[in-house]
Design a protein around this nucleic acid. Structure first.
Length: 142
DNA sequence: GTTGAGCGTT
């Protein structure tokens, strides 16, 4: 029937426009560049009170291990904290234990939200996966 | 004197 062939074509179009590019976009957002988030020794710390500075943040995390870097993002104009920052440990083990025990815990009146940081490096080339057309992949198979 | 999810260089 005519409708059957139309549906067949429609399904193929949907597969081409949806399935493959979707997985490419997922990979773009979930794979920053280098290491996987689970092996990251840098923590993303949000939920900070606006009165928290880098010193008090480092003091709070130093009990879990060697803190190599503490960075809080400040507003460019007002100079006040933006409420989140990054804490690096020399050992991933310490970062992991610090995250486990500090995540959700209140710090200066606000509950902390901690997760492993994405490896964002200024000047690093952005890895954009090539959008491989499904026709090429299918043609290569044959 | 304020606001409240988030992934970056003030």
């Amino acid at each position: 029937m005519k409708n059957n062939s139309l549906m067949f074509l429609a399904r193929r179009v949907l597969r081409i426009n949806h399935s493959s590019p979707t997985s490419n976009w997922r990979r773009y957002w979930s794979t920053p560049s280098t290491s996987s988030p689970s092996t990251n020794s840098k923590l993303f710390v949000a939920g900070l009170s606006w009165s928290v500075d880098e010193k008090s943040l480092k003091d709070a995390f130093s009990s879990f291990g060697d803190v190599t870097e503490v960075r809080i993002m400040y507003d460019k104009e007002t100079g006040r904290s933006r409420g989140f920052g990054f804490v690096s440990f020399s050992k991933e083990d310490d970062a992991s234990s610090a995250k486990d025990s500090m995540d959700g815990k209140a710090f200066l009146g606000r509950p902390l939200r901690i997760s492993f940081a994405l490896e964002k490096v200024r000047g690093a080339p952005v890895v954009v996966p090539r959008i491989t057309s499904i026709e090429d992949a299918a043609a290569r198979k044959n």
